[in-house]
Design a protein around this nucleic acid. Sequence first.
DNA 1: TAATAATTAGGACAAGCGTCCTAATGAGTC
DNA 2: GACTCATTAGGACGCTTGTCCTAATTATTA
Lengths: 201, 201
Amino acid sequence: MKTSATREQIIEAADQLFYQQGFAHTSFSDIAGVIGISRGNFYYHFKSKDEILDAVINERLQNTQDMLDMWEEAASTPAARIRSYIHILLTNRDKIMRYGCPVGTLCGELAKLDHCERTESIRLFDLFRTWLRHQFTQLGHKEDADRLAMHVLAWSQGVATLANAYEDKDFIDQEIQMICTWLEAYTPPAKRPQHSSDALH
Amino acid sequence: MKTSATREQIIEAADQLFYQQGFAHTSFSDIAGVIGISRGNFYYHFKSKDEILDAVINERLQNTQDMLDMWEEAASTPAARIRSYIHILLTNRDKIMRYGCPVGTLCGELAKLDHCERTESIRLFDLFRTWLRHQFTQLGHKEDADRLAMHVLAWSQGVATLANAYEDKDFIDQEIQMICTWLEAYTPPAKRPQHSSDALH
DNA sequence: TAATAATTAGGACAAGCGTCCTAATGAGTC
DNA sequence: GACTCATTAGGACGCTTGTCCTAATTATTA
């Protein structure tokens, strides 16, 4: 059985709805309604709702890894690659203002539900963490690489949370600018690009 | 009708459970089980579940305001007051690692549920935002006061989100240190206390 | 003590949920 | 056309949910 078309549709619709409404608040009826199938035949493709969640997380893991690989090739310097990460705040700005960060909100919800898939969801954070750490290592930060990666992760998470609460476009833009300015202090002077820098940090 | 004892018990139990399990995932049975009352007499004290949520938010608003007022008196300088805020990350460290930030996670959940109490929950953020802004204003930051307040809010939210995901004590401690160090740069030199400062920012 | 009001317990209710079962439909092969 | 297998639709199921109703209980007052 290759990956069935219906199965793919279910995963995609669930992916969207889990993000927009949360996992627990999304029902089979919701998913079925979106793609126009009967509620009954979910169990031909999945054994349980949790298994759909597992498939959604794996889908996101794959997509995230692909995105990171793409950034790795597209951007020429580690600093530019980190900026690629920061700029998803801008690319997904409207969705973040409505639904928050898909990774942070999922991990948060599964933590509260004490759900067994919680561990899996954290692997999404791991992907970014490892990738960012790698970039900082390339910037010459041996000891601090992981701490800096966590710092960037936390920073972007905080921006997403407050952008979601206040639905504030300008706040996102400002913080992105601050992160980029902060980042320049961790870029080797030789490779440092010439930006305007009224450094806040 | 003064505030009934049972009513207070319901609000307090709901407050805890909404934090630990989330609002949607907490049932009347859950609350009833905790305080040992029947499921039936909720509707003597509240008209609906949403009204309980409203009462819980108002309770939190009151407690938060009291806490801010206390900090206002207890700490002698604006910088010390801001540090009071930062240190709730330390005081509530264990709970944050298990359940995240009570404000951030509630706002996030209500945003996904598109719940009518969402606006009320954001007032919790407003309380901190206004208070922090006031402190930064006192530090002499006229134009930037609100941006700096939002920055501190976002930073602490990010720390809570990742601390929750990774259940990492040390990460919280490190970030608190970073925030305090960062804060020194915004404290007038005359009043600036002598701390060790291997500044990361 | 008797009467009245406040408070509670317990269950009924309709609706929605995840799950499961079975008959019907579809596509592809002999 | 007949057969087989994959896929689907539709509904039944047991359970839980928020909500509501009513009788019982407790507290308060006369």
